[in-house]
Design a protein around this nucleic acid. Structure first.
Lengths: 216, 216
DNA sequence: GCTGGCTTATGCTTACAGTCATAAAGCGGG
DNA sequence: CCCGCTTTATGACTGTAAGCATAAGCCAGC
């Protein structure tokens, strides 16, 4: 028995307050950088020279393996930093970043960024919180992919997104991810996600309304 | 054609220099805590009151799902911190910690630890490096579990361990993990790891010498 | 030195995720 | 408004990882 309650609200995604204040970054010498849809911001394995913070648009932080499966590490929304690992360990980027739509990014050269961290303890802790959040997400994902069934994996991911109010409309529960993106987060195939979500809908655990997923 | 070169060296695991100096922690008020094999150090979901650093022994940081599959998040060796996420975001522990052998841990109360971070920038950055390292490990694991075949997953993990000199003897390449632990890191079954490692051995990509795995 | 639990091992069976092919619906850009 | 790309959808087939049973080897602790 599929749920069929029509959702009438406007989709609303939770706003992220910027990790670092835009004024602060600008005063330190950060510059705006604009990227077209599909444009590469940095590549996996490249040397890192900047701190990046998304101002508007969407960015996917991912790996693409030998040929050509995509593994999504994070989908970045405005206000978030990304590609920050090399700033701490001086290793190359662990994953690449690509603009999913026209996007605006604030870039602060690495040395200036490290100065900022040293001077601004609150900023430093804000970044620590972001890294802790990323790690928690990874902990959850690894549990999710270890589930016996794809149902298990997908439900675990959806529960987390709902709980954390990420990529989900706070009002209506609209999941702001394509089935392909869900697949790429969990290491599944699109067809599997399509079939499982349909089954979840039939079981009444999920709502599909003209192809869009709602999780309440 | 299996490799059959006998390894004669003594197994040597890379020493970790302690994340925070033991003297520093003690001077801040840290205390030693001893745990017997199998003893729980903290549980997933519990509230966090301490910074933990392993002095001797081994600790596994893991989740155990509804019934009773284990997902290993990290295997902690002396010198490493663990359970540090809640120190930054005040959420409960994302995973539990259990002593795998008789272990000695230095514990510093959370408030004192945060004071230490504020005062000691180098210590703060050392912890950031550790978190970056953990995130890189997770990035790799998620790529590994997304591989099409268990061979792919296992080889990716082993390559990483070799490259990072973790849980592997620097001289002889002895993998210091049981097949069960490899399975629990990758979300596979023991039997699968056993069969795949045997196949890798037969293909000459791995050495098994009286049941122990050597990766060179 | 014995004993029990963990680790490694192997065979058999089965469910099902992946794969491929095909197609319709939706959307964005010119 | 139309065209093309992305996304969703569905059917048929297949390989294989999981699951279960069983057993031997190994080590730790009493």
């Amino acid at each position: 028995m599929p749920i069929t309650i029509a959702s009438t609200q406007q989709p609303v995604l939770k706003e992220q307050s910027p990790l670092a204040s835009i004024d602060l970054l600008l005063s330190m010498g950060a510059t705006y950088q604009s990227y077209k849809k599909g444009e590469i911001i940095f590549k996996e394995g490249a040397y890192c020279r900047y701190y990046h913070q998304l101002v508007s648009g969407t960015v996917v932080w991912h790996n693409v393996d030998d040929l050509g499966k995509e593994i999504i590490q994070a989908i970045i929304v405005p206000g978030e930093s990304f590609g920050e690992l090399p700033l701490f360990d001086d290793k190359p980027y662990a994953a690449g970043a690509v603009a999913m739509q026209q996007s605006l990014v604030l870039r602060l050269p690495k040395e200036l960024f490290l100065e900022l961290l040293k001077e601004d303890y609150d900023m430093h802790m804000a970044l620590n919180r972001k890294m802790a959040e990323r790690l928690r997400f990874k902990f959850m994902l690894l549990q999710a992919v270890s589930q016996a069934t794809p149902e298990g994996s997908i439900c675990m991911l959806l529960n987390y997104l709902k709980q954390e109010q990420k990529h989900i409309c706070t009002g209506c529960g609209l999941i702001n991810l394509t089935r392909q993106q869900i697949a790429d987060l969990l290491g599944l195939r699109v067809e599997t996600v399509i079939r499982v979500t349909r089954r979840l809908h039939e079981e009444g655990r999920l709502l599909i309304e003209n192809r869009k997923l709602f999780y309440v």
